[in-house]
Design a binder for these strands. Sequence first.
DNA 1: AGTAGTGTTCGGCC
DNA 2: TGGCCGAACACTAC
Length: 244
Amino acid sequence: MPEGPSIVILKEAVQQFSNRKVLAFSGNSKQVDFGAFTGKKVTAFASWGKHFLICFPHATLRIHFMLFGSYRINEEKETPPRLQFRFTNGTLSFYACSVKVITTPLDEVYDWSADVMNPAWDAGKAIKKLKARDTMLVCDALLDQDIFAGVGNIIKNEVLYRTGIHPLSTVGHIPLPKLKALVKQAVVYSFDFLKWKKAFTLKQHWQVHTKSTCPVHHTALKKTYPGKTKRRTFYCEQCQELYS
DNA sequence: AGTAGTGTTCGGCC
DNA sequence: TGGCCGAACACTAC
């Protein structure tokens, strides 16, 4: 569920409830005053990176699925929903997710140009942010939501392989053309992810993530937990150059 | 059938 | 102060 493209899929799947009035609203979230949203109309569904946003005239509900969150449309799960909306044309339920109420205008909360899937995405700003973090390891930089909102661990591994950059490379030592390729592919792979996920073929397109051999050299891939983020990292020592 | 992970926040410690 | 680390959260595919 969690990476940016999956949130875009969710946003598209719930459009049937856009501009609909909430007939009933319940759940086990402690963050939400359910009465404050009952009878209100959903003005829009939006997203920023891995954040899913349900907009109302007076406030926005921010949903983050973390590792285990899920949702159902016109279906029920056994587990109690964190949030459950009933509309005239169906129900929308969220499970095991983090929920927050946002009352500040969204443009003040979110820098839309940092979201790799947003039309406002600004590659130049991403390059500037990377240059300002010159001692950071690239494996950590790709997971930094202030730079690449929406990028998760799968996208990280695949983008590093595509661009031939070793995960332990230091951002400040990566040549500018390579850095530009990295920023470019963070977006390109995210949209590939979206396309493949919709077609239920995402996993079969993975080149290194969860894999044990390099698709080019047929030699063993490395699997480590590097950097500050210590997330599972798959890479090929022959294909991916170390800049340090 | 047990394990590990598409993620983030928080509190404690040094 | 601030960086680092582990725990917590809570589900399910492999």
